[in-house]
Amino acid sequence: MLDPSIILNHKLVPKHEKISKKEAEELLKKYNLTKDQLPKINEDDPVVKAIKAKKGDILKITRKSLTAGEAVSYRIVY
């Protein structure tokens, strides 16, 4: 497969980071969500593999947005 650095540095791939348990709890509380209401990301997604995230981790994704300039979104690895 491809080198993780190639995937993570690609123009089309926004920044993905794992968030801590505490941050995850705060997030779910802030939006009054359960984990399964979050958007998902596949366990075998190349980016998930590249940053070595595991099932159940929540990823914080900082996208470049056409409307907001920068937008933060979350996905749960399943």
Binding site: L2, L12, I41, V47
Partner: peptide, 11 residues
Amino acid sequence: KVLGIEAARNV
């Protein structure tokens, strides 16, 4: 497949 779901969204 190669760059992940977020890249697909961008495309």
